[in-house]
Computed example of a mutant assay.
Amino acid sequence: MIKLLFAIIGILVGVIVGLVLPITYSPTYALYISVAILACLDSVFGGVRANLENTFDTRIFISGFFGNAILAAFLAYIGDRLGVPFYYAAIFAFGGRLFDNFASIRRILLFKRTVRKKKGKSENELEN
């Protein structure tokens, strides 16, 4: 529960800082930033999934978050310099994993809800 509270506080602080500070970047970097954000979202969804499976490790999350973002941006940069769209590799890899993690999160939550409903029925049957 404490981890969830920290996550919510972190998201709120990030949104407030993003809205208050007038930070802009050159459109030249839009490709690199968008691929890095996709990699970060993959890490976030993976972290949520790991938390629901009770296998979350902060070190793995942090290293994956920054490592994936740097790798994705680096692939986009190298591809841009070579004239080859390497960023497609990052889009396919991280995009596919993002949807896999989302599907797993959905299944876990639905399973937990089903188990909770069954437990509630069992307890109600015992009371009657």
Rank of each mutant, 00 (worst) to 15 (best):
A72I: 06
T55C: 11
I70T: 09
A50K: 10
R97Q: 13
G83Y: 08
L19E: 11
A72R: 00
T58Q: 14
R97M: 15
F102Q: 00
L31E: 13
L31C: 10
R81Q: 14
L98M: 08
L19D: 13
I105W: 01
I91G: 06
L71C: 07
L98Y: 04
S43F: 09
D57N: 15
D42A: 13
L52P: 03
L52Q: 04
G14K: 00
L75I: 00
R107L: 12
I91T: 05
R106E: 12
T58Y: 15
D57T: 12
R49W: 08
F74D: 05
R59F: 11
A76F: 10
G64V: 13
Y25F: 14
T24I: 03
F102W: 04
L110K: 11
Y87V: 08
L21P: 07
L31H: 11
F94P: 05
G47E: 02
D80M: 07
L52E: 06
A76W: 04
A103M: 06
D100E: 13
L12S: 12
L82V: 07
Y88W: 11
A89H: 05
A36V: 01
L12R: 09
F45Y: 11
L52C: 03
I60L: 15
V35A: 07
V13P: 06
S43L: 07
L38V: 10
A73Q: 03
G18H: 01
V48Q: 09
F45V: 06
L41M: 11
I105K: 02
F61H: 06
V17S: 06
N54D: 14
V84L: 09
Y29M: 12
D57V: 15
I23D: 10
I37H: 07
G83Q: 08
G67S: 04
L19R: 05
T58S: 15
Y87A: 12
S43Q: 06
F66Y: 10
G14R: 00
C40V: 15
N51L: 15
F65T: 05
D100P: 01
G64R: 07
S43H: 03
S63Y: 14
V44C: 12
A36H: 00
N101D: 06
I105D: 01
R59A: 12
T24M: 11
A103P: 02
L82T: 03
G95Y: 03
V84P: 00
V35C: 09
S63K: 10
S43A: 10
Y32Q: 15
G47V: 02
V35L: 14
V44T: 08
R81N: 11
N68A: 09
S26I: 00
I16S: 10
Y88F: 12
R106C: 04
A72T: 09
I11P: 09
G96P: 07
T28F: 13
S63M: 14
L110S: 13
V84E: 04
L31M: 15
A76E: 04
R107T: 04
L21E: 08
D57R: 15
F99P: 01
R107K: 15
L12K: 03
Y77D: 15
N54A: 13
P85E: 08
